[in-house]
Each structure stands twice: as C-alpha cells, then as structure tokens.
Computed example of a mutant assay.
Amino acid sequence: MNQDSQRVTETKQKIKKAFLELYREKRIEKISIKEITDRAGVNRGTFYTYYLDIYDLLEQIEEEATEAIKAQAEPIITMLLNGSKSFTDLLPVEFFKNNKELLELFFGEQANPHLLARLKKMAQGIAISKLNLNCDDGTLESMRLRYALEYISSGQIGLITYWFKNEMMLPMSELGRLIEDLNLHGALTYLINHRADS
C-alpha cells in the first residue's frame, strides 16, 4: 500500500471511528457532519470526498461490517452444521475485542433492526447452501424449513446480542460451548438437564 492510499485509509478510519463514537451517544438524526469532522480532526470537504452524507457513511460502514462478520461466522456455522465440537477454536475473540464500536451497530443498545435482519438472512443463506436445503418450492416442507431457519438464526443472534449487551462477561469459550450445547441438544433439553431438583 502506497502512502497516498494509506493516508486515505487512515482518514476514512478516523471519520468512521468518530461517527461510531457519536452513534453510541445519540440517534443518527442528531449527529451533524461538523461533529464528525471535528471529532475526527478533518475538514468538512474531506468528509464529502468519501461520503455523500451521514447515511452514505453509515451504509458503507454497515456493508463492511456485514462482510467482516460473515467472514468470521461462516466457518463457525459450517462446523456447527457438520456437528463438529472443535468449532470453539474458531471463535473470533480478537475480532469482538478489536471491533466493539463497530459491533454496537449490530448488537448494542441502538442496534438497527434492519442490520439484525440482514445478519439473520446471511446466516440462513449459509445454512441453506451448506445443507443444500430446498426452501423455495412452495411445499409445506419448505415452509417448515424456513420457520426452522428463522427460529435458529433468531436464537443465535439473540444469544450473541445478550452476551454483547452484558459486556461479554461470559468468556467466549464458554459462550461457544453453550451455543454448541443449545444447537446440538436443544434449548429445552438444556434447561431440563439443569433443573435445581435434578
């Protein structure tokens, strides 16, 4: 990477970081370009060199983040679908630590429902592809498959959201074991096996 492209990358990172910090504090409608550029230490013209407006900035951040999450999630989903118990080695501990501000968009207090739906669709697409499922032929069975995919993907995202909102206090290795147990043996079975009277 030459100096010019490195400078561009660094400038865009400053703008994104400033935006994400502000986005944690308030709704997007309340954020001004001036606030972003002041916090990033760049001028207004520089902002417009890379982005049309705040919504364009958000869209680009969301697109990059979705691709990054997909790259982290796909091998884990694949191993889970194969029934592998060694997928915990693939858990993206560093990714979550190093991208907390970015992940706020998906799992934080102001998470965008559109992004959560996008994550679910991405996870479902991976499962459909890896398991070679036919979910679109209009049969009762394909409808049931769609419901099952919705149930599973909603559960996974809900679990990660709960973990993220609780400051990731449960070690990721333990979260991985829990995900494995819930997926391979069922949430209801997990609860029944952990009754106080058993």
Rank of each mutant, 00 (worst) to 15 (best):
K100V: 05
A71S: 12
N98H: 12
A68Q: 07
I126N: 05
D136H: 09
Q110V: 11
A71G: 05
Q124G: 15
F95K: 01
A73T: 03
K100Y: 06
I76V: 13
R144I: 12
P75E: 12
K130T: 02
A117V: 01
N132L: 09
T88G: 02
K97V: 08
L140V: 11
A73L: 07
G83V: 06
N99K: 05
M143V: 01
L115V: 07
E101N: 03
S129Q: 15
S86L: 07
M122T: 10
L119D: 12
R144M: 11
H114A: 14
G125W: 05
E141A: 15
L140R: 06
K70R: 14
D136W: 02
E141R: 13
L119I: 07
F107R: 11
A68T: 00
P113W: 00
S129E: 14
M143C: 06
I69V: 13
N132E: 07
F107W: 10
S84A: 13
S129M: 15
M143Y: 02
S142Q: 06
F95I: 00
G125C: 06
A117C: 07
F96M: 02
D137V: 09
G125A: 14
F107L: 14
K85H: 08
S84Q: 08
L140S: 13
Q110D: 11
M122F: 08
K130G: 01
G125P: 07
L119H: 03
F107D: 11
N134D: 03
L140E: 15
G138F: 10
